[in-house]
Amino acid sequence: MAKWLFKSEPDVWSWDMQVAKGDVGEEWHGVRNYQARNNMRAMKIGDQGFFYHSNIGKEIVGIVEVCAESHPDSTTDDPRWDCVDIRAVRPLARPVTLAEVKDDPRLQEMALVKSMRLSVQPVTEEEWRMICELGGIEP
């Protein structure tokens, strides 16, 4: 299974709001970047991702799972834009801040560091393991 990172501004869509959706999950809509869209098109049911609070907090706070593969984004009539549905799996025992990620030499190639603006990013298995370790959970 592939690993990902989903960015959201917590004043727009927070971890708590994602958790409140339960097993049904929520459409990860509104993405208007081709690379992020293509990342979602590559996702499979069961793929997991980190839930990242951008702008406010700037920290990885939980793990989500893809529960519906790529489909048309319901927030637009433009056929170019797709999205996936995700559901919350579990919080990290402790959030991992962007500053911690940037300060860790093992994570310098992570998309979160190198492609800061990309809202849906791939995460390598090694990066996944390290972030889980920093967040106090088993990968």
Rank of each mutant, 00 (worst) to 15 (best):
G49F: 06
H29L: 13
V123R: 01
K21E: 08
V84C: 11
T75S: 13
A36Y: 02
T124M: 05
E100T: 07
I56Y: 14
V19T: 09
E9A: 07
H53Y: 04
D104K: 11
S70P: 04
P139M: 13
G25M: 11
Y34C: 09
V123I: 14
I137D: 03
D77H: 11
V123A: 01
F51E: 03
A20S: 12
I45D: 03
S70D: 08
E27N: 14
R94Q: 12
R106Q: 11
W4V: 01
I86P: 02
G49A: 09
G136T: 06
T76S: 09
D77T: 14
R94S: 04
L98S: 00
A93K: 11
N55S: 15
V64Y: 09
P122D: 02
N55F: 12
A93F: 04
I137C: 02
V123G: 00
E9S: 05
N38I: 02
C132R: 13
A68Q: 12
S8N: 04
E69C: 11
V84E: 03
D104G: 05
I45Q: 07
K7L: 10
W28F: 11
L134S: 06
D23C: 07
M40G: 04
P105H: 07
R32P: 02
K58A: 05
D103I: 03
I63V: 14
W13F: 15
R106Y: 02
E26S: 15
L112Q: 10
Q121C: 02
W81S: 01
V123T: 09
K102F: 09
S14F: 06
S70K: 11
K3N: 08
L107E: 01
E27H: 14
T97E: 03
A42L: 07
G25T: 12
T76Q: 11
I137Y: 08
R94H: 06
E127V: 05
E27K: 15
H53K: 09
R41A: 07
D73F: 08
H29D: 14
R41Y: 06
E125Y: 05
W13N: 03
E9P: 00
F51G: 00
Q35L: 02
L112E: 00
R117V: 09
E138A: 14
Q48F: 07
D11W: 10
K3H: 08
G22E: 07
Q121H: 12
W4C: 00
G136P: 03
Y34S: 06
R106C: 00
I137H: 07
D77V: 10
R106H: 06
G46S: 03
W4E: 01
M43Y: 00
S14Y: 10
A68I: 04
E133Y: 12
K102R: 15
Q48V: 08
H71L: 05
V84F: 13
V31M: 05
L92H: 02
R129F: 09
M130D: 10
C83S: 07
A99C: 01
P105S: 12
V12N: 14
G22T: 04
E59F: 06
A88E: 00
D85Q: 10
A88I: 03
R80M: 11
N33S: 13
V64D: 00
T124P: 03
P72W: 12
R87L: 10
A20G: 08
G30Y: 05
L98Q: 06
N55I: 13
R41H: 08
G49I: 00
V89I: 14
I131V: 15
C132Q: 08
E133T: 10
